[in-house]
Design a binder for these strands. Structure first.
Lengths: 188, 188, 188, 188
DNA sequence: CATGAATGAGCCTTCATTCAT
DNA sequence: AATGAATGAAGGCTCATTCAT
């Protein structure tokens, strides 16, 4: 409902642009709207029409991961075991962060370009927060950390996994080890 | 003997440039040699003479912290208690990373502009590695992390502490909490 | 079909830029794209879009002369008298070189920026070579020079004509005298 | 007598600078006084003291060839055979031009930085002119060229020999062939 | 005399954004 | 809606020349 229904050709362009942008982000090339336009075979103006700024495009890329994670989080809330629920959720989060570069950027950004992003982030933080608080109330988590520390910590682990390793598998691996260590530290 | 003895006026300019650069880095402004020159009240050429690239300047800023940390690390090696030695060293490291933005950048960089930096980093990693291995040999540290994870982890914690908090004291505070959590996880 | 059809306004800018560049080259001012842009009343970016390097612009200027000369050369090949054909062609070549500064630069350059230039030069050299060889086969030309000497010799004469005389008519005059002397020397 | 007698150390610096500059010119590197100073192991100021401009240095390099050629020319004037005298002189001139890059530059330059250069050039042109006129008076040389064409022609041949051949021997070779052709054309 | 640090104009190039077509 | 040419601020770097030490 948020987005107006697009004409068929406009929708096709939108898809192309997003696809190209995803490739670029994946290979680490900094997003440049001119460049995206060229590779997508559309005019610069078209890209600007769909995505007024680089950030807007990046947030659009991140949307998919944000939605998936939210869904996972909501499922986790249904889990009886608070610790298993929290740790599973965090594992998925870290994996997404390490895999999808747009996600880590958007997650760490203090402000958003799209209202939709703000909304999604808020929901996701809220779900994560509830998982965390449930675990703390159950006494399985240290008391000196708060739910507000979750996002920074996830960003930090993703960042740590990226430092010094450009190989994707090495990154995923490192991320898991770091999360495990942290979870051990979190657990009471 | 490391640095060639500078003429008095050259030394004064060097100091000015470094001081200005430190301020800029501190306030989060990206280093631009033209800008540095302007603010330091010297010609662009002067900055370029002293620091051929932005990286060289940044590494020069980081040198101080790198040296201090190395000295601390070497003192720590003299400590009888392997755990106390390691955790103390890491605490100082994190504090430096959070306080000095040049340090985190230089630490995370895969390559160096100045040979001096490479040398300093190597020494520091080596000291940290020895502290870590001593702790592991003493059986006070988890076995699935290695000394090579130390640098990424420190960078990650510093990054986490910086996300979402621009207030210096909040950063230092967060960094300590995160390190504590991690250390709990590390400890056997 | 060689050049993509330009939009009307783009074409107008292209023309302006080329015209300004021609003037500058004519008056001996070294081409600078910023300068060209300014004088043509367009933005720097526009010049860079049309001509990525100074060389590309210069070669574009030279194209006209290269094409004209090639046409003349092909007509000359139709002439029955090998000597008249060769000497006429060389006379036109020299005249063009002395008149059009871009031509001499491009001719003497070991490498080209535009594929089109390489193609044109190759064709022109080939035509000239055939004229020369026909004359040699007819026994009207010295045997110790080869068709490969033609380009250097033409460049040399143009250079000679330019040394010490900034007045256009004096240059053309000198060029003719020097070519005549050389042709006398070439003739058997 | 023109140059004031130099102190011994000043003389040594002068020699070093000139030697370095000769090497640079030989290898085709454009002369830059800072660069020369660095390679010669002296301060920039010292180079500027001895040679106020790049041109002055270049002319100093050319002096040697100018003097040698003048001497040769004067010997040639003693030769009974006007044609042999002229052609021998021109052969030496061309050889020098092709061998010594400073000479061709200085020869072609419309103005001089050092009075000494002007004087040397004047003398050399005069000697060359006399050789030429003697040959013309003897009726062994075409009448439509004048002694004033000698310098341009020599520059032109040297230029032609340099175009497209970076190999020294190939240059000398080409220069000889071109001169021979021209001399044939000059001869009546 | 020698030194070499300092200067800064000058040139090059990129890229986010606008707007006529 | 789409296109892509045009714009020009912004930043990077070099090098000839001066002048304090």
């Amino acid at each position: 409902m948020t987005t107006a229904p697009l004409r068929k050709d406009a929708a096709r362009n939108w898809e192309r642009i997003v696809a190209v942008a995803r490739d670029l982000v994946e290979e680490g090339t900094p997003l440049q709207l001119n460049d995206v336009a060229h590779r997508a075979g559309v005019g610069v103006g078209t890209v600007y029409r769909h995505f007024p700024t680089t950030e807007a495009l990046l947030e659009t890329l991140a949307t998919r991961s944000l939605e998936t994670l939210t869904a996972h989080g909501e499922q986790a809330l249904a889990d009886d075991d608070p610790w298993r629920a929290l740790s599973g959720f965090l594992a998925r989060t870290i994996e997404a962060q390490v895999t999808d570069a747009s996600l880590s950027t958007v997650t760490a950004a203090p402000t958003d370009a799209l209202p939709r992003t703000t909304e999604l982030k808020r929901t996701l933080w809220s779900v994560g927060g509830r998982l965390f608080e449930r675990a703390r109330d159950a006494g399985v988590v240290r008391a000196d950390l708060t739910s507000g520390d979750l996002v920074p910590l996830m960003c930090g682990i993703a960042y740590a996994a990226n430092v010094h390793s450009s190989v994707p598998t090495a990154r995923t691996d490192a991320a898991h080890r770091y999360l495990t260590a942290l979870l051990e530290g979190l657990r009471t």
